[in-house]
């Protein structure tokens, strides 16, 4: 087995909350709480969870767009957290990100060409401006836009086209890993499918690895080799996609799966319904974070002790006292 491209161990990020008159921070939100996973070159890890589960923060901590408070990130053999400014700059050429909102993530005052070329300029790619223009044209063509689009501005494009521009910008520096932070959540279904197919084609052609963040299990099923499910800052289950869909182990994964509306009228499936709401992340439930909503909880342990990840099959890990 070759070493994984990206290896994350016990990654943590807590945000202090200003409390008290003099801003003494007493409380902290543990947005990411000891998250671990591996991602191999050319593969896709889907990271799934509902709002506030820490999936986006995890992605940003890996890129050090947000500085983690604990744990380690190893990319291509290098300790990401130990890198200095220059090292980090070089690293970001290998790791890129595509954001959820194609409206907010493109500068409205720059042309599409300038947006894509800027990344190359920063990383010293291309001999000169003319060479970069040729590369931009090729990239636009690659993501299904037209080379003449480079002189246009973001507002002239639809959501799906803007997301293609975001993909072209990420590809401009020839990365090995792209963190896709809900890249299709803001798009209509028919356009969603176009963008997902594009990402898959690019992966096949360029050998890219993706960390694909999403809030439901239906989109990631179409892209992922492995899937990690997060709840309130922690990974609760991680497995190969086929194993996860065929036999989800964690009750939260089961609930997420059964909450997806099925486009088959009359086939009303039995839902594993969750009672209650997502607890406040400032003051999460003790023990297993999920115990307050868990339909199968029986042990007193669930409310007192954090369940650690344990194996429950080939490459399948679950954090549940009742399972595994």
């Amino acid at each position: 087995m070759t070493a994984p491209l990206l290896s994350v161990r016990d990654l943590s990020k807590s945000f202090p909350i200003q409390a008290g008159l003099f801003g003494r921070s007493k409380l902290a939100v543990h947005a990411v709480d000891r998250v671990s996973f591996d991602l191999r070159a050319g593969q896709t890890l889907g990271v799934v969870g509902e709002s506030g589960c820490g999936k986006s923060t995890t992605g940003r901590c890996i890129l050090r767009l947000i500085e983690p408070t604990g744990g380690s990130v190893t990319f291509d053999g290098k300790d990401v957290r130990a890198l200095d400014g220059a090292g980090q700059q070089a690293l970001r050429r290998d790791m890129q990100i595509i954001f959820q909102d194609p409206f907010a993530s493109l500068n409205p005052r720059m042309t599409i060409g300038a947006i894509i070329a800027e990344a190359m300029t920063i990383h010293g790619l291309g001999r000169d401006a003319a060479d970069r223009r040729v590369r931009v044209a090729a990239l636009l063509d690659r993501v299904g836009l037209k080379p003449e689009h480079m002189r246009r501005y973001p507002h002239e494009f639809s959501g799906g086209q803007r997301q293609r521009v975001g993909i072209a910008r990420a590809l401009a520096v020839e990365p090995k890993l792209i963190i896709c932070d809900e890249p299709v959540s803001a798009l209509d279904v028919s356009v969603q499918a176009q963008v997902v197919n594009l990402l898959k084609d690019l992966q096949d052609d360029l050998g890219l690895a993706y960390m694909f963040i999403a809030h439901d299990l239906s989109v990631v099923e179409n892209v992922s080799d492995r899937i990690a499910v997060m709840y309130l800052g922690r990974v609760v289950e991680i497995a190969d996609a086929s194993a996860l869909y065929a036999g989800p182990q964690h009750p939260y994964t089961e609930a997420l799966l059964s909450a997806i509306p099925v486009p088959e009228p009359g086939r009303h499936k039995v839902r594993r319904k969750l009672s209650g709401e997502l607890p406040n992340p400032i003051n999460p439930p003790t023990g297993c974070h999920f115990h307050s909503r868990c339909p199968i909880r029986k042990l007193p342990l669930c409310a007192t002790e954090r369940p650690e990840m344990k194996p429950c099959g080939q490459g399948h890990m679950v954090a549940c006292h009742m399972r595994g």
């Binding site: 299990l217 179409n222 194993a243 799966l257």
Partner: peptide, 22 residues
């Protein structure tokens, strides 16, 4: 074009799309 659950096999398929845009 609705992504359907397919027992984790979706990875190896292409989604059907509607070409073009509105």
């Amino acid at each position: 074009s609705i992504p359907r659950l397919d027992g984790g096999q979706g990875r190896h398929k292409r989604l059907d799309t509607i070409a073009g845009s509105i």
